[in-house]
Amino acid sequence: MQGWRGFRKSYFVYSFLRDPMAMGSFLCLAILVMVSFGAPLIAPHDPYDSSTIDIMDSEMPPLWLDQSDARFLLGTDSQGRDMLSTMLYGMRVSILIGLGAVALQAFMGIFVGLVAGYRGGRFDAFLMRLADVQLSFSTYMVAIFFGALFQAAFGMGRYEQLAVPLLVIIIGFAEWPQYARTVRASVLAEKKKEYVEAARVIGLSPGRIMWRHILPNTLTPVLVISTVQVANAIMSEAALSFIGLGMPVTRPSLGSLIKAGFDYIFSGSWWITLFPGVALVVLILSINLLGDWLRDFLNPKLYKA
């Protein structure tokens, strides 16, 4: 209780409440996350339950157009699934993959950055060179290539079955250098401080110094890049799904819904692709804006300018 009151009075909350942009994007994000994770409760239909889907209901327009059906607020897709429900479930898949990929890349990046920064020497030089080279290839390229390779290795059917963990691995692996470099940079700065020296003098093991003493002091920049990384991971997932290297249409994410709808845009069924598209853009935009605010808040260097 004490902690909560302290938090409410903190400068963090104060400056958050003063910034309408941050408030708005946070609100937007909170609503999207809540409705997507509450999809089984909120959604009017279950897109995974094939017994409720009727192919006769396919390609119905949203409620405010002609020939619509009162059951389907945002219309239906080519298989007769309710757009609204499918989008809610799809957004849940997208967010889950985004969070999973960021957790994986944060774990890999923090581990590599911490060890490389603390140990230094050849080991550090090699790992950072590796990170540089991988970054220079751009994360999208790496993700697309690994997606293609996994699909070639597993075959289309198995790949679709394992799509969620595979996408988490692919996107997580494609973006670890971001974390490694951020963590390493702050480890190098922290390493020289007295408290690390003191810990070393009283004979703590290097592992303990790294994880218990240095790591907590490097977490601020990690937090800052994490928001943007989640947005990036969701974008990567959508891109991979769009070119057919991601989630199958039977278990749609926002990206594969857009892909599925794209085939019907020429027949005038714009809603199948546009609604998931708008949801994706709003999701990414609100995460990015929130990330921008967080960066400005946590990075005191910017106040000087």
């Binding site: 845009i265 853009v281 935009l285």
Partner: peptide, 18 residues
């Protein structure tokens, strides 16, 4: 340009086509 960065390229392409 902030909005442009947040819209995936395939979505821009689809909107242009539409």
């Amino acid at each position: 340009s902030i909005v442009g960065v947040s819209i995936p390229v395939f979505l821009t392409a689809i909107l242009l086509i539409y």
